[in-house]
Amino acid sequence: MKVEVLKRKAKSIYTRSKIPGVNWTVNQYVGCAFACRYCYAKFLCRWRDYGEWGSWVEVKTNAPELTKKRVRGSVVMSTVSDPYQPIEAELKLTRRVLRYMDKRNELSILTRSPLVTRDIDLFREFRSIEVGLTINGVDGREKRLFEPLAPLHKARVNALQTLYDESVRTYVFVSPIIPGVTDVRTIVEETRGLADYYFFEVLNLRAAGREFERLLMEEYSESYEVLTDNEKFESFIGALKKEIKALKVRAEG
């Protein structure tokens, strides 16, 4: 898929967060070329008439200068994009944002890209920083259907290993958890000891959009049924909580 790059100047870069426990969000990019079919950020297409999700990326060219501002509290990068999506390898916008950002800020970075390991030298300059890898174990057919353009599972695990080896505080964001598809136990066992904690998130079918809902209904009807039948969903959640507890890892959220 060809990606259109739209360069814009922003008025500000720190946005008040609605996420519990998070004070600010930073998005130097808007839109994401990984184009995951279930991405919750697709709602942005309502206000940005650039085309289908994944076909465009908005670049805030003055983001590095704007991030010099000191904000109090926790900052998350990013919520409507991936800070290390393919274009970052060329533009190095995220790297410049990190260089300019006040190192006293409490920063949490979330990505699914192994490119994140490039900036370990800058991570060391921050007083408080953590890096999360979205690891959901999709491979083969599921990857082709759900996130064909995203980095491979093994590449994400290797990036987590590198960050751990370099003493960077890390977490694993297991998302989206899809009944009958996501093997939570295998993900934890493969990454055990490489993350300070885990965050587990079950797929929000409504946020994933009607197109993905149809895809799941057609290709994984049993998964769809669990997510749409209240009784089966409650049973699934109960079993998932027991499984996570049995894995004996630190779980947040």
Rank of each mutant, 00 (worst) to 15 (best):
L6C: 08
L6D: 11
K9T: 05
Y14H: 09
K18Y: 12
P20I: 13
W24N: 05
N27T: 02
Q28C: 11
Q28G: 04
Y29C: 01
A35T: 05
A35E: 10
C39L: 04
A41Y: 06
D49I: 12
G51R: 07
V59W: 01
T61N: 09
A63E: 01
V76W: 11
V76L: 14
V76F: 11
M77Y: 03
S78Q: 06
S81I: 04
S81K: 10
Q85W: 10
E88T: 03
E88M: 09
T94M: 04
T94I: 10
R95H: 09
R95A: 13
L98Y: 00
D102R: 11
R104E: 11
N105G: 13
L110I: 11
V116F: 02
D121T: 08
E125H: 10
F126L: 02
I129F: 12
T134F: 14
T134I: 13
V138A: 15
R141V: 06
R141T: 09
E142D: 14
K154V: 14
R156C: 09
A159T: 04
V168Y: 01
T170R: 09
Y171P: 03
I178C: 03
I178N: 02
R185M: 14
T186F: 07
T186I: 06
I187H: 02
E190W: 00
T191G: 05
R192C: 06
F199T: 08
F199C: 14
E201Y: 15
E201M: 14
V202M: 03
L203C: 08
L205C: 07
R206N: 15
R206H: 12
S223I: 05
S223C: 07
D229P: 10
N230W: 15
E231P: 02
K232D: 03
K232Q: 05
F236I: 11
V249A: 06
G253H: 15
